[in-house]
Amino acid sequence: MAQPRYPVSTVDSVLSRMRALAAQLPARDGVAVFNRVYLAVTEEVDRRLDAGEFPDRRAAATLDVRFAERYLTAVDAADADRGAPACWRPLFQLRRHPGVRPLQFALAGINAHIGHDLALAVVDACHALDCEPADLEDEFDRVGELLTALEERIREDLMPGPDLLQIADPLTHLLGSWSLERARDATWSAARVLWALRRCGEVAEEFAGRLDAAVGFAGRMLLTPLGD
């Protein structure tokens, strides 16, 4: 389970990195589409942290930062032509494909980040806070609830309109096969397994690798080109 290579230390530094990416990337770029979604989530988490809506502010901020590090490190790896995690490769490889719709880019990024990165981020946060995954379950659930609400808005905002009915049916069918709620449940189980295996060396690495590959396979399906 490789650690992020370019760690950020606070939620504010996470927001700065994401805003810089938003300014640099073309709006139609697939990573830019996901980055806008994730920036909105992180801004809302920051607002709720400042408002005292998390019972344990330190735990919530630590999980949020460790989570973001995974995404930002993957972006850095792709930009430097280093090996990005398998879960992110479909998005990086197809980010400029004209036949992939913005909604597909957004959900493929969410799939990679929730399905793989979040499980490892829970383990990272447990190490940083010297706690068990169960101690972070409230923070995990609150962030997950926020993501679920945002996912519904994303689907509404990015689903093709009446002028694109020729692709609406296959897009609806394709994206209807993926569920954020199911992904969250699977991620929590994966985080607990990874924590239990933390002293098992190769076994833990193998489990994390298989998780990465499985999430990458789902991402590839979500990014099936559907035509211009």
Score class of each variant (00 low, 15 high):
51 A>F: 08
206 E>H: 00
131 C>K: 01
168 A>L: 13
223 L>H: 14
201 G>Y: 12
117 D>K: 06
136 L>D: 11
29 D>M: 01
152 E>R: 13
127 H>N: 06
97 H>Y: 00
72 L>T: 08
197 L>R: 04
188 W>Q: 09
195 W>S: 06
4 P>A: 00
226 L>C: 04
81 D>K: 00
140 F>I: 02
34 F>K: 04
124 D>Y: 05
153 R>Q: 10
183 A>S: 14
140 F>L: 00
119 A>E: 02
25 L>W: 10
129 L>K: 05
174 L>I: 14
86 A>I: 08
98 P>R: 08
198 R>C: 00
39 L>G: 01
112 A>W: 08
178 W>G: 02
99 G>K: 12
159 M>W: 04
181 E>N: 15
77 A>T: 05
213 A>N: 08
51 A>L: 12
170 P>V: 03
59 A>M: 06
133 P>F: 13
151 E>V: 00
89 R>P: 05
197 L>P: 03
24 Q>R: 13
137 E>M: 01
143 V>C: 11
104 Q>W: 11
123 V>E: 10
40 A>E: 07
176 G>H: 10
1 M>L: 12
120 L>M: 03
3 Q>L: 06
79 D>C: 02
103 L>G: 14
156 E>P: 02
148 T>N: 10
162 P>W: 04
121 A>N: 08
8 V>L: 12
223 L>T: 09
199 R>I: 15
166 Q>E: 11
137 E>I: 02
221 M>D: 01
196 A>S: 12
190 A>W: 03
66 R>F: 07
170 P>D: 04
27 A>G: 15
70 R>V: 01
198 R>I: 03
35 N>R: 09
82 R>N: 05
205 E>V: 01
60 A>G: 07
77 A>I: 01
78 A>I: 06
224 T>I: 11
58 R>L: 15
117 D>P: 02
42 T>Y: 06
49 L>S: 02
97 H>E: 04
210 R>P: 00
193 V>H: 12
6 Y>R: 14
207 F>S: 03
135 D>T: 04
88 W>P: 15
135 D>M: 03
144 G>N: 09
118 L>K: 09
88 W>Q: 15
184 R>Q: 12
38 Y>M: 08
225 P>Q: 11
69 E>P: 15
193 V>D: 15
119 A>T: 09
24 Q>V: 14
194 L>P: 06
165 L>D: 06
28 R>F: 08
133 P>D: 13
55 P>K: 07
2 A>T: 07
6 Y>D: 12
214 A>C: 02
181 E>S: 07
142 R>Y: 00
36 R>Q: 08
97 H>N: 06
85 P>I: 13
151 E>Y: 02
4 P>R: 02
104 Q>G: 09
58 R>F: 14
14 V>R: 06
188 W>T: 03
71 Y>A: 05
156 E>K: 13
198 R>W: 01
26 P>E: 04
21 L>G: 13
146 L>C: 05
41 V>Q: 12
180 L>E: 13
62 T>Q: 11
122 V>C: 14
165 L>H: 09
160 P>W: 04
37 V>Y: 08
144 G>R: 11
130 D>A: 11
19 R>L: 15
25 L>D: 05
138 D>P: 07
82 R>K: 10
114 I>P: 11
198 R>A: 00
133 P>M: 14
56 D>C: 04
196 A>N: 11
109 G>V: 02
48 R>E: 14
